[in-house]
């Protein structure tokens, strides 16, 4: 067996995994805390990637820079969407299933709107440093992968800090554990949820841009991304930021290894297969003990 190939696929898998984690963490948050399963989550990642693509090709702005305004815009977009369509169903008995169907509709709208604007042709984000790589012996690590991974680390750290260190972040968690208690101490349930939702969408956007620096994307790509998001979140345990990060890395490594040794057209089947097996055996995540 070729050792440097092994190492190479391990490293690129690991970097990839960081990005899965960033894409997944917001999804995990809305599912675990707001009990909303946002099928359109990955579509927002694609939307952000197109935003960065325009910024790069029309305005020549580096994706890392354009990321900030794009993520900011997505935050407000997320808040708006929450107010318009998620908030009315928060009282529904089967909120998870209802939210799934609802955001499924949203995903279809986003995908096809993007198809109209940007056509189904695959695009890549190629910043100035796109061709460069860091060489460690036989192993080359493309700059874009490193930048993407860096973005993911920062993003996940920020979300984790937000949830555990800020007043609003703590309120987000408290609200949904004890909705009535939270209302008593004057937390506005809907406002807090809106913020959480906006934040989740922003994280999806950042993840989308990071992903787009590594791989080509097109409007329909969100389906595949979403499957990875599901995989990461379910393996990591719904609602857990740390679990999501860990699961992202784990799945990155697995897919990295698959890419090196498994024929291309079987890779997705393996991913779906793993997800099905995890769902059947450990639907509450593989890092969580007990019920």
């Amino acid at each position: 067996m070729n050792f440097s190939l092994l190492l190479q696929s391990l490293i690129s898998g690991l970097l990839m995994g960081g990005i899965y984690a960033l894409l997944g963490v917001g999804f995990s948050l809305t599912w675990g805390v707001l009990r909303v399963i946002n099928i359109a989550h990955a579509s927002f990642g694609i939307l952000a990637a197109y935003g960065a693509y325009w910024a790069l090709t029309l305005l020549h702005v580096d994706p890392v820079l354009s990321l900030l305004p794009i993520v900011g815009l997505l935050f407000f977009m997320g808040m708006g969407i929450h107010k318009a369509i998620i908030q009315p169903i928060t009282r529904a008995r089967e909120i998870m299933v209802a939210s799934m169907v609802l955001t499924f509709g949203l995903a279809i709208i986003l995908e096809n709107t993007m198809l109209v604007i940007w056509s189904p042709d695959p695009r890549v984000l190629t910043p100035s440093y796109a061709g460069r790589a860091i060489l460690l012996g036989d192993i080359g690590i493309p700059m874009t992968h490193l930048v993407g991974f860096g973005l993911s680390l920062v993003g996940i750290l920020l979300i984790s800090l937000f949830l555990h260190k800020t007043h609003i972040g703590k309120a987000v968690q408290a609200t949904w554990q004890e909705p009535e208690g939270a209302a008593l101490v004057g937390i506005d349930l809907h406002r807090v949820s809106r913020i959480a939702f906006g934040l989740a969408i922003s994280a999806a956007g950042a993840g989308g841009i990071a992903m787009a620096m590594m791989y080509a994307f097109d409007p329909a790509m969100h389906n595949l991304w979403l499957i990875f998001v599901f995989l990461v979140v379910i393996v990591g345990g719904v609602g857990s930021v740390f679990g999501t990060a860990l699961a992202g890395l784990l799945i990155g490594i697995i897919t990295g290894l698959c890419m090196a040794w498994v024929p291309y057209h079987w890779i997705n089947a393996i991913t779906f297969g793993i997800l099905m097996i995890v769902l059947l055996i450990r639907p509450h995540g593989i890092f969580r003990t007990g019920v």
Binding site: I85, G105, I108
Partner: peptide, 17 residues
């Protein structure tokens, strides 16, 4: 087709709401 699907998407949302 894209426009048709956008309308379906809206239908999903409308039905749930």
């Amino acid at each position: 087709a894209e426009i048709a699907r956008i309308l379906y998407g809206m239908l999903f949302i409308g039905v749930i709401l």
